[in-house]
Simulated scan of single mutants.
Amino acid sequence: MTAMPPDLRGRRARDPFWVTVSAVFRGIERVRSLRAPVIPNVPPVDRTLRLVVQEVRPEADGVVSLRLGAPDGRALPRWQPGCHLDVRLPSGRRRQYSLCGDPADRRAYRVAVRMIPGGAGSTEIHHELHEGTTLTVEGPRNAFPFLVRDRYLFLAGGIGITPVLPMVRAAHHLGADWHLVYTGRTRASLPFLDELAALPADRITVRADDEVGVPDGAGLLRGARPGTAVYCCGPAPMIDAVRGAFVPDGNRTLHFERFAPPAVVDGRPFEVELRRSGLTLRIPADRSALDVIREALPDVPYSCRQGFCGTCRTPLLAGDADRRAPSDPDDGSILICVSRASAGRLTLNL
């Protein structure tokens, strides 16, 4: 076979076969690059909102509701039953309140707050907030999701009606089989009885302690037939009683939300080193790392304080963690609201 002669610059002519092969491979690579997914640089979502108090309304003895809207009247982010807001009060205090209005109302959020003797946050809301007060909120966030089921039993204790009320309406809208047991010290202390009156009366049981006594867990769960999703929110003794009496058989499930984090059980004191801040803090046996850290670093994010929302997840640089929540896997971080140290000291990237 005679070799291809060089061109005028002395370069060998390219073999047509290899020219064709190279063109085919280049075409294949180009098609692959067009099909490859483009991963955008997604900025973090800022869920901070500046809202104005549109209305402060008495709802029951010691309970007021706040209607919050955007100053310019724009539509607010959507939410689902079970969602809550993190509210920063004018004093700097931060509190979480369940949304208890209508998810279809995009112009306002509603929360309700019970006056707690000695409670700084509730005192500020009841005595210092008024129409026109501007608040900074974060959310909505959902740490108490409402799942679609055929049958529900809702258990609400006092102000625990706030996350449950939108769930009851949603269950009714879905055409599900549902029943609500609503308990409290007195009928006068129970908010939103007037709104519940618009729903079928045979599906609602109101139990006032001064009329029929304090219910026990087994009594509250009497209507939880197989296949029932039980949703419970109320004071800690009520939730503990329900949890103690609940038997998860026949595809029954229990979902609950506390007003406050559970007490630390079998805790041991330990230390946390905050590497970026240059601080070392002592965590007592009966307090969470989150509580102590927030005294030194008030801007540390948190939400549920019960180990399931993940808001307070913090990189763990050194130390063995005593992980006390199923949602706290050993992935190089720790939920500082519930988990602790196994052996004396943790080093966190804070």
Rank of each mutant, 00 (worst) to 15 (best):
C232P: 02
A218F: 00
A241T: 05
L220D: 03
P226L: 03
L221I: 02
C233A: 11
E195K: 14
Y231A: 00
P235Q: 11
E211F: 07
R187V: 10
D216L: 10
G234C: 09
T228N: 00
V230H: 00
A241Q: 02
L193S: 08
D216F: 09
P235K: 04
R207P: 04
A208C: 07
G227I: 00
D216W: 08
M238W: 03
V212G: 06
R207T: 10
A245S: 08
D194I: 06
T186A: 09
G213F: 10
A198I: 08
G217R: 05
S189R: 15
A201I: 10
A198C: 13
E211K: 07
D194W: 03
E195L: 15
D210M: 10
A201P: 14
A208R: 05
A245H: 02
V214T: 14
D210Y: 07
A197I: 09
I239L: 15
A208P: 07
D209K: 06
V214S: 12
A198Q: 14
M238F: 03
P226M: 00
A197D: 15
P215M: 08
G244D: 10
A245N: 05
D202T: 12
C233V: 09
I204E: 06
L220I: 07
G234V: 09
A229Q: 04
E195G: 13
G219W: 01
I204R: 06
S189A: 15
R222V: 07
D210I: 08
R203H: 15
A201D: 12
A224K: 00
V214K: 14
D209C: 13
A245I: 01
G217L: 04
R203L: 09
R187P: 08
R222G: 04
R225L: 06
A201K: 11
A224Y: 00
P191H: 14
L193I: 06
R243Y: 05
V230A: 01
C232S: 09
G213P: 11
D194G: 09
R207W: 12
P237A: 11
L199A: 13
L193M: 14
E211A: 15
D194E: 14
L196V: 11
P235V: 05
L196E: 12
A224D: 01
G213S: 12
E211Y: 05
D202V: 10
A197F: 07
P226A: 02
E195D: 15
P235I: 04
A229K: 00
R203Y: 07
R243K: 11
R225P: 00
F192R: 14
G213W: 09
F192D: 15
L196I: 10
I239P: 02
T186Q: 10
F192K: 11
A188D: 15
D210S: 13
D210L: 08
